[in-house]
Design a protein around this nucleic acid. Sequence first.
DNA 1: CCCAAATCCTAGATAGTCGGTCGGATTTGT
DNA 2: ACAAATCCGACCGACTATCTAGGATTTGGG
Lengths: 147, 147
Amino acid sequence: MKFSVKTEYGLRALIELASQATRKPICAREIASRQDIPERFLEQQITSLRKAGLVNSQRGAGGGCSLARAPEAITVLEVIEALDGPVMNMDCISQSGSDCRQSTQCVIQELWLESQVQLRGYLGSVTIGDLASRQHEKADRGLTYTI
Amino acid sequence: MKFSVKTEYGLRALIELASQATRKPICAREIASRQDIPERFLEQQITSLRKAGLVNSQRGAGGGCSLARAPEAITVLEVIEALDGPVMNMDCISQSGSDCRQSTQCVIQELWLESQVQLRGYLGSVTIGDLASRQHEKADRGLTYTI
DNA sequence: CCCAAATCCTAGATAGTCGGTCGGATTTGT
DNA sequence: ACAAATCCGACCGACTATCTAGGATTTGGG
């Protein structure tokens, strides 16, 4: 019961993109080196994010990727589901045959379902924009303290 | 991002125990056959539940296991953590060395932490008693319809 | 006192997933 | 033409999840 590093890498990459003032695309190599993420691995996650419509990517020299929407319009939930598949998917057991009504399995399915609703509700309410601004606050405060 | 079958089996076993009118212990074999769960596997989960203090077990002939507390006093969260370890544990990355303040990792840690709080909050609010009574309602309704 | 029934403990076996690497094909600006 | 970048798919080692198995230990009943 934990999130994968794929999603962590993906989120960090998107935060990096959101923090970028310029709207020019940044290449995977640069994000990877700045965030200290294995380059070829991050490449794959970026491809997944593109297929999910969260980033645009430009091939060839001078290419790279950029956010497909405003950071405030990309939720953490979308990122997770793009990289890890459905949050808490339950391949429901009671297909066709078994009578669900008197089975304890069904009650537990409902429990999982409600857990999913709770978690997705929260994750869907946080955006990349939120994360980026939180991180900036942190960085600023860190600066103030240390100077 | 999903729960294991260990926890599903554990929950079903506990619901079975809670549904039992008599307070006499039931053996793992019987629970397993009634719930259609691999017997030797369920045995192991019951042992874990005992170590977590959720069930009592009696060895020897005529032995078995029974709930250690009232069904309303056992939360789903406890069961999950007994069988699967901490829900969404994050072995925090920023131990000692790295400066957390300006790292995006820290923002994400906080995101995971808040997700954990949300999920644990819900799971801690549902008890075995709740699940057992929900299941009975289902069974009763099913009966009414089919008769 | 012995036996059968039950839990307990430990060690696998097997299959799948996760994190990561790699070779190379393709696109594209200079 | 060349270098920089994405894209595609295969592969790999390590780990985990599910389940099986052997046997030690406890315990009530005849």
